[in-house]
Write a protein that binds this DNA or RNA. Structure first.
Lengths: 252, 252
DNA sequence: TGAATAGTGTCTTTCAGACAATATGCC
DNA sequence: GGCATATTGTCTGAAAGACACTATTCA
């Protein structure tokens, strides 16, 4: 499958088409079936894809092209396929939208208010993903009418309960960062300590003391100096670091 | 509905019957439907119900009376009904098994490995509940053949992936206890500091220093002295405390 | 040599953890 | 009075936070 950002609209519309179709089928079935009291909800996966661009923490949104919530922005998401685990389903959504694979993914939780989708009972499992912006193809970062990155602090009006999902994702990202060094996942393989500090500051939404930050990070023993330097502008170059190892990945 | 522990087996068997029935219906449908690639998974709620009895942290299990995993112990759980939120579904399971309502509930996460139930694709949303043992009717705590409380550290072999769900629940309970005073939910309205400390020790699975514990808890300002005392044995009575207010409850 | 960022150490405060003696009620 | 648990404060070590100057490169 081509990791084209232009197929996203189609994918999204496809999921919507299926949702409507399944809903109609369900309607027909439940009127003749004995299972009415246990009418089965539908299950989707929705993905909050975080990245850092232009010193901003951003999330990927897709503009809906069909009812309900037509022309509103929404999280990428879709149905879970047969034989697919939940993280695999999330990774597939992620790949379809960004063309990137092997990405840090973490489940947020299930969101299942009965009225969160007016068409049918849809329960969604939220995930968040951390993608380094250097892994994103330029065309994905282009502003098209249908897909765009939004600053976490300047979100447009969102479809369904996606506002709530993003807020929960952001909170959980902040909590996780206090315990594990996942911020690395938002940077290229090699990065400077200043770049890393900026990611922390964006996620925690406050500024940090340079000396205290470096002290804490370096004594954690998770960074390795590469011996290379990043020259940028007319000032002293910064040392480039790499992760030691064992970066955590998906969760069943 | 009678909060009888004896109806649980029936409820559990009912859910199993429905699962088999729905599965057969799904099979028929998918062979004639155009929706095969988006075959809809089934969704259940499973509940890890914690309580403290005889100075042990325990969870409620139900012995399965039908295939698969017949005669193995399993978590109480079942389908989500139309119009019911996820916490409401969990609260209903809880009430059916224990007769207790208005209980602290917290979502764990969704568990959705494709092969976790051999009959069909079933995604379950895990919850844990904290119930004070004084709210449990005596008959629920009786040992029957079908329902029983098990020490968290001495669990029998469990059906499906319920071992994993319980482990995740226990970890999350421990993590939550570091941030919020939910241990109160496992005690009666009034309790002594020693009783509270024992709950912390059970959940964190280590012994705590009495003076440090009391210092930390009391300076949190969440406890109120009732002025009453608990006399027990031939020694100095202990002061009874109550929660200040705002005990957190369900989560959408 | 001036501009711009990289890189570094000390002091203070705060919080967690170790530790033991007195108080009170019942038998 | 003896037993059993309740109740209370100090000291120490570790970690977090405040804080300012020197180093290096390039224009």
């Amino acid at each position: 499958m081509a990791p084209s950002s232009l197929s996203q609209t189609a994918a999204q519309a496809g999921a919507d088409d299926f949702l409507t179709q399944i809903y109609q089928e369900k309607e027909r079935a439940s009127s003749t079936s004995s299972l009415r009291t246990y009418e089965t909800p539908l299950v989707t996966v929705d993905c909050v894809i975080f990245t850092v661009q232009q010193s901003r923490l951003k999330a990927l949104l897709i503009k809906r092209s069909s009812e309900p919530c037509i022309h509103q922005w929404a999280l990428p998401g879709g149905f879970i396929q047969v034989g697919e685990t939940l993280p695999e389903a999330a990774a597939r959504q992620l790949f379809d939208e960004t063309g990137v694979s092997n990405v840090y993914l973490q489940q947020i939780r299930a969101f299942g208010s009965p009225d969160r989708d007016p068409r049918a009972r849809v329960i969604t499992i939220g995930f968040f993903a951390l993608v380094s912006s250097n892994r994103l193809a330029p065309k994905t970062t282009e502003t098209t009418e249908d897909v765009d990155w939004f600053c976490i602090n300047e979100l447009p009006e969102l479809a369904f309960d996606h506002q709530k999902i993003i807020e929960t994702a952001h909170t959980q990202l902040r909590d996780t960062l206090e315990e594990t060094p996942i911020a690395f996942q938002l940077l290229p393989d090699m990065f400077t300590l200043t770049e890393l500090q900026k990611v922390y500051e964006l996620i925690e939404n406050k500024s940090l003391d340079k000396r205290n930050f470096r002290k804490k990070i370096l004594q954690g023993g998770l960074l390795v100096e590469t011996g290379q330097y990043k020259k940028e502008g007319r000032h002293r170059p910064a040392s480039l670091y790499r992760f030691a190892s064992g970066m955590p990945t998906e969760e069943a």
